[in-house]
Design a protein around this nucleic acid. Structure first.
Length: 359
DNA sequence: GCGGAGATGGACC
DNA sequence: CTAACGGGTCCATCTCCGC
């Protein structure tokens, strides 16, 4: 059955939240920052369009962002708790308009509106209605894409930003994709792009012309298969509400170190923050992990799955202390820059069924 | 061979 | 243009091990 999927993305969400509650910064370049606690260190989480005009984009080191800023530019620390609240309200609006709903991140979601709309014309009208409700109730703009599946809807929503609305019908889907550079295909990051370069693949059409076997040899069965499908504009992925799989907190150490006490202090404070969330959401868990990132930015993890589900912070701290001890024993020369804690394996999680890849 | 557990890496926002 | 650089999550894959 042919579907109609809507993807909606809130425009420079963090920055827009701040502009909404701080009238005095409206119209200025606004840069939302993640500070690491070290001098001169940190990165841009979101920049509004005025800041992007100065060449300041998400992911940029703060040093660089500051160098590009003008006198007007406002730098603010990210307040994720606040953005989460705003996001929750907007996701509620999205959900109320859909047959099925899938939140992908704090600022984007898929809506399956096949039943509700039946035609692309009605879906377009619905998207306009949702956009205007979000603007009226939450004073924020968003960009929407409509297509026959999640991939096309997602890429459509990126097409016109901010405050855009792009409709790609099934018959225009191929044309919409083919001429685009292959790295614009959702799911292709730097590593995959690097490999595709060796095959002289430049456009999505080039990728569509490769045979599945080659892609599967290069990227593995599943990823190769998906690359092949996606390059043809095919995506059978359903719009489904996802259960949370894991919860983590990571932070940067004030100084690079391999001192157990220093690392444990940081892990304890991250644990405190994580447990505020765990308690608020009544989460119990079975697996506990520590995450370490050394000065070369290599990540290593250590985890342990307990016998029973638990909610106990005391037990958690005991377990991560023993994980850390073991890790430092095995890696006596690792100097850490960042570290973190994680819980996973929640009660409702069912084993994954994989039904695909017959062919 | 199948699963869970544990570890790693890619991708995205 | 690169490299540098935050925090959070999901997913695939590989290895090991017990059944």
């Amino acid at each position: 059955m042919s579907r109609i999927i809507l993807h909606i993305d809130l425009d420079s969400f963090y920055a827009a939240c701040e502009e909404r509650r701080k009238p005095e910064i409206r119209g200025k370049p606004v840069v939302i920052c993640m500070y690491s606690g070290r001098k001169d260190s940190g990165a841009v989480a979101t920049a509004n369009y005025a800041a992007r005009a100065l060449g300041i984009r998400a992911g940029l080191p703060l040093r660089t962002a500051r160098a590009r800023a003008n006198k007007e530019t406002v730098f603010l620390p990210a307040d994720r708790e606040f953005y989460n609240k705003v996001s929750g309200k907007i996701m509620g609006i999205f959900r109320s308009y859909s047959d099925s709903f899938e939140q992908r991140s704090i600022d984007e979601a898929y809506l399956d509106v096949s039943e509700k709309c039946k035609t692309y014309g009605k879906a377009e009208a619905l998207a306009k209605e949702i956009k205007s409700e979000v603007l009226r109730k939450e004073k924020l703009t968003c960009s929407a894409g409509i297509g026959p599946n999640k991939l096309i809807a997602k890429m459509a929503s990126r097409e016109h930003k901010p405050d855009g609305l792009t409709i790609i019908t099934p018959r225009s889907a191929k044309k919409f994709l083919t001429e685009k550079p292959v790295e614009k295909l959702f799911g292709i990051g730097p590593k995959t792009f690097e490999v595709l370069k060796h095959y002289k693949i430049k456009t999505i059409n080039d990728l569509a012309c490769m045979n599945v076997e080659t892609l599967q040899k290069e990227f593995g069965d599943r990823k190769g298969f998906l690359l092949h499908q996606h390059s043809q504009g095919i995506d059978e992925g359903e719009v489904l509400e996802l259960e949370k799989q894991q919860l983590s907190r990571i932070g940067t150490l004030t100084k690079d170190t391999k001192n157990k006490k220093t690392i444990m202090r940081k892990l304890s404070s991250l644990t405190g923050d994580m447990f505020r969330k765990i308690r608020k959401e009544h989460i119990s868990f079975k697996t506990v992990s520590i995450i370490t990132i050394n000065t070369y930015l290599d990540t290593k993890t250590r985890s342990k799955t307990l016998e029973e589900f638990t909610k106990s912070k005391e037990l958690f701290l005991k377990e991560i202390e023993s994980l850390l001890k073991g890790f430092l024993k095995e890696n006596p020369d690792e100097i850490l820059r960042r570290c973190g804690v994680r819980v996973s394996t929640f009660p409702t999680q069912k084993k994954k069924q994989k039904s695909l890849t017959e062919f």
